[in-house]
Design a protein around this nucleic acid. Structure first.
Lengths: 216, 216, 216, 216
DNA sequence: TATGAATGAGTGTTCATTCAT
DNA sequence: AATGAATGAACACTCATTCAT
């Protein structure tokens, strides 16, 4: 049972399909160990051998499943995003109001963060840290994520529910940034001063009225 | 002429007062070199000797001005923030409308980013990368930054211009996150699709109406 | 075949029991290389990579067997002393005259030095060099060595063969100093002007009559 | 007032004559500082800048008086020995019994050690540490020291007071080693368990009867 | 003489990665 | 597939020495 499968009952391995090495039990152990170790020590300060130790695997075994240390981080990112998309699809059925969709999206993100704080830290802090990831690595999955927000905004504008003056391209980034920062703060907070849901609600209150078309 | 002095005509050395080693010409050269090198290669991938080379200084000289490689990063952060606060104080005079203050704050941040893209990258990407900075190092200056936003919100609420239901504590984080993400995207964008000012305007449009108290 | 096994036919590994890493072939190669390199260049001037090169091992391999460069020196000392004690026990059977025991002890020490001059240099010169070893590191084994001499003296006094006025505590140091200095000179002598055995005999002549109780 | 001048009222500078730079007040300050620093930290762990700090001189100033760090150590050694010889000449007047001369010699050495423990440590531990000093540097002064002992022994043998079978060449080394070791132990002893004079007396008791020709 | 800022060669140690078993 | 001993490139930092002032 890994950290992610705690969020989503369906097996992790079902969605990731690109990997050459079919994710198996040992692959999972390594991913889970990496999440734990990276979130505690930080990616750069974590040793591959630390991950191996936690995963109860030999150092070399990690290289049977991952190309190198970076690949471990990328793999964590990619499979996490796959989960997220799966969930997003489930929760935001067609026909919902764009405002409601956006609310659910925000809630989903923050709920996921709450359920998996170690993972959240890795994705937010460590991933961002590497110039490689931010500049060179085409964060395909990250763009997919942004696209989800963009589509909601565009739909809202098409249905005249959101201000037409808003640039969806820019707004999606601002919204992601806000969610991301709230998530990060909440995760790093030792003594939680408020539940994540509170953060979600507050953010919705600002964003939704911020986007809303003025009533005639 | 260093990167920062490009933003602010007044000398760097005038404001920073805490440093034991009084920032002098060589200190500046090293800071500027570090900003350039860190923003290009990333903090972890940058060698101290790279910084020395760019600064046209011997490796050892860096250690006359900075305790170690980390200290270089922290110093960049701290002096940048000092600049920012100085600027913020100048631009947001007393008596301004809270909405106007917030607009100016956002514009200030994004303008500064535009004027100093290398520095912006370092602060956003590299600083965040280190577990040290995020968890252990008490980012005093960062909290001061957040406090500026918080005070504007509280003032707006006190004057019944902003919704009372908003938690300033949470909102300030959301706003910072939004600014930060827009800044990051803009900086990393190879071919600028829109001016930063456009990002500032868009963000203001969402945030200001999002915070505004409904008209009776 | 290592330097020490030249002195004692029994395997090195048989006696050293405290070491976590069981001395194996590679461990021995490193120890032997270190003795050679340290005796030639001196501990401080020897590079770890020099030792690695002589041992025909990668630099990093040394750190699989030794905590650090200092540990290499300590390990050489400790295992040498273990050998010595083993030998001393064998050569100085119970029932021997204290004078005879002392003679054999001195001969043993100087013979060992002759058989292993590189090691002797390291132990005498390099070990003494480090403030760490002399002041902080409790040279347990060295005190054991001194104790052997002390016991012989005390036995001689108990049997009224040695002067009762002699302080065993002080005498053991003086004797060790004399042996040590003779050993050092002999080792450093390029062209040997006399055999070590001669030095042993001369020292015995002084010490034994110096300790002897006056005949009634 | 330097450490050495505490032992000998005559000025340090009067005897050292080889030095190009005439030893003056600043030269002395540096020597004294070096003795203090080297004895505390050990030669290799002491920084030239430490010595400069203690001497209240700029780093560069040291190089006006000494060729390099090694030269500092050599200079300490040489001038100490000069003092010693001066003293030895004074105390061991012609006409004295060889036994009495040897006793005075041993007492002189140990008294000097007691009066100047920092210096003693430097000479015994640090000097010996460097392969340079032991192997390459022709310790002229050290041989002079040994010669003093040798001459006493030869005189004793010529006058049939000492055993003719003793090799003066070997005995002088043994005696030096014994003195040196007793000195070292005494200096490093935290809580002095006995006065140095006791060590001197004990050593004389062994050595003198050890050398003495048997009475007919 | 004296200074002390600047230099830059030098090295112990780490750790991602490999590969013989 | 799995291991983990071995590798060796890489790098932050130190400090003896110099030299412009």
């Amino acid at each position: 049972m890994n950290e992610l499968s705690f969020i989503f009952p369906m097996s992790f391995t079902d969605i990731t399909t690109e990997k050459k090495t079919p994710p198996n039990e040992k692959y999972q152990r390594i991913i889970d160990a990496a999440i734990r170790v990276f979130s505690q020590k930080g990616f750069y300060n974590a040793k591959v051998s630390d991950v191996a130790k936690v995963a109860e695997v030999a150092d070399g075994t990690i290289y049977l499943y991952f190309k190198n240390k970076d690949d471990l981080l990328v793999s964590i990112f990619e499979s996490s995003m796959d989960y997220f998309f799966q969930q997003a699809k489930d929760r935001m059925e067609e026909g919902l109001d764009p405002s409601e969709k956006l609310r659910r999206f925000i809630e989903l993100h923050l709920d996921a963060v709450q359920k998996n704080q170690g993972l959240a830290q890795v994705l937010q802090i460590e991933l961002r840290s590497s110039t490689r990831f931010m500049k060179e690595y085409k964060a395909e999955k990250f763009f997919q994520y942004l696209k989800l927000i963009e589509e909601i905004i565009l739909e809202g504008q098409a249905r005249a529910l959101f201000k037409p003056s808003i640039s969806a391209e820019i707004a999606k980034r601002a919204i992601f940034g806000a969610i991301d920062e709230l998530a990060l703060e909440w995760v790093l907070m030792k003594k939680k001063r408020y539940p994540v849901q509170e953060a979600a609600a507050q953010l919705c209150e600002i964003i939704l009225s911020g986007l809303a078309a003025p009533v005639a």
